[in-house]
Amino acid sequence: MIYISLLHVFPLCSINFLMAGYDSISPDLRVTARGARSNAAGRYEATEIRYEADGWAQEADEKPLRTHVTDEVARRIISYNRSPDLPFDRSINPYRGCEHGCIYCFARPTHAWLGMSPGLDFETRLIARPNAAALLDAELRNPRYVPQPIAIGTNTDPYQPIERSHEITRACLEVLRRFRHPVAIITKGTLIERDLDILSDMAAQGLVRVGISVTSLDAGLARKLEPRAPSPARRLATIRALSGAGVPVRIMASPVIPGLTDHEIEALLAAAREAGADAASWIMLRLPLEVAPLFQDWLQEHYPDRVNRVMNRVREMHGGKEYAADWGRRMRGSGVYARLIARRFEAAAARLGLEKGQTRLRLDLFDRPFEKGDQLALFG
């Protein structure tokens, strides 16, 4: 048995028990293969709920913390941005939240907008957008739409485990293929191999490129960092499969974690080049908002002897803060250490022939296919 304490208590009717985050986890739940250790309420919540054990809970009563998926009927699917340090101005995200559970994920704070925790809620309470493909079709048919490459997977992974049953990413790719619209995909999910039939066809027309994210070659470390993501070796195999099918693929050393994975840069690029990657990129560890305490809590549990070493480097790159969101610096940091990492990466990439930029995707093939019932189809 347990009791729940409410801090900053409001009238009972104002508390959303379904959506609010929990600072601690119910003693009757068994948390395994998850990145976060807590479920603190998001920054917009006026209430905080804590479970307090009364000593009656038994291991035999524990139930596993399972993943729950809720459907969202979206109104639009293409998101636009004007960020000067991003190589794309539009993107699609078929899912909110990500079961991979990467503890460092910069997208965790987005769950706070939904009234959920950036902690365990982010990786266990997912939202799918089943009407994404239909919306995409409609938005691309707008006469005012002007094509530019669409990025998929910029916030949460489009090939996380629930894609196997929901197939929203595949449905969106089928739409893009019909319109002959360029797309850039970012993932660490090996399920992308399922869609090689679509990707190889689009690649032959210069319409697709893929980035595979690999943080470390150390399987033990990766398992702790990214508990439900494929192993590093399996992701390298995916690079090999994509390359073998003629799909341009780059290795994304992302994120580089000071004092934890930074020593692997050269080996990581070499392994990716051997697997068939034709380009490479990197991003430094980013700890915005709720990610910073979640990551430090993770460090304290798994690498207590490195907490100061890692966090001192992080603060050194952000003017003494755990994160600074300045354009042009948020992805790489600044200072001596950041410049050293950049030079090491550039030298390794040049030595391996991975220094070229991303494959330029074609825009001139874009065409709106006829819909059923279009009269002009009679003259096709």
Rank of each mutant, 00 (worst) to 15 (best):
S231T: 14
P232M: 09
P232E: 10
A233N: 09
R234M: 13
R235H: 03
R235S: 08
L236P: 12
L236C: 11
A237I: 03
A237H: 06
T238R: 00
T238I: 01
I239S: 04
I239R: 12
R240Q: 15
R240I: 01
R240S: 15
A241P: 01
A241Y: 05
L242W: 08
S243F: 10
A245I: 00
V247E: 09
P248A: 09
P248Y: 05
V249F: 12
R250Y: 15
R250V: 00
R250D: 13
R250W: 15
R250M: 12
I251H: 14
I251W: 03
I251D: 11
M252P: 02
A253V: 14
A253N: 09
A253C: 11
P255V: 12
V256M: 12
I257A: 05
I257Y: 07
I257F: 10
P258K: 09
G259E: 07
L260D: 01
L260M: 09
L260V: 10
L260Q: 01
T261K: 05
T261Y: 02
D262N: 01
E264F: 04
E264Y: 06
E264N: 03
I265L: 12
I265T: 15
I265Q: 08
E266A: 15
E266S: 14
A267K: 13
A267V: 02
L269M: 07
L269S: 03
A272C: 10
A272G: 06
A272I: 11
R273G: 14
R273V: 14
E274I: 01
A275H: 11
A275I: 11
G276V: 00
G276M: 02
A277F: 05
D278A: 14
D278H: 10
D278I: 11
D278P: 00
D278L: 03
A279M: 03
A280M: 10
A280L: 10
S281K: 07
S281L: 10
S281M: 12
W282V: 13
I283A: 06
L285S: 06
R286T: 06
L287C: 02
P288M: 04
P288R: 00
P288F: 08
L289H: 02
E290K: 02
E290A: 13
V291M: 10
V291G: 07
A292T: 02
A292L: 03
P293N: 03
F295D: 04
F295E: 04
Q296D: 13
D297G: 01
D297T: 10
W298Y: 08
L299C: 08
Q300V: 07
Q300N: 13
H302C: 09
H302W: 15
H302V: 12
Y303R: 00
D305P: 00
R306V: 13
N308C: 03
N308P: 00
R309M: 14
R309H: 15
R309E: 15
V310E: 02
M311K: 02
N312A: 13
N312H: 07
V314N: 05
E316W: 05
E316P: 01
E316L: 13
M317N: 04
H318N: 15
H318G: 01
G319H: 05
G319I: 09
G319E: 08
G320H: 05
G320I: 04
K321V: 06
E322Y: 02
A324M: 09
A324K: 03
A325D: 15
A325W: 08
A325S: 10
W327D: 13
G328M: 10
G328P: 11
R329G: 04
R329E: 15
M331D: 14
M331T: 06
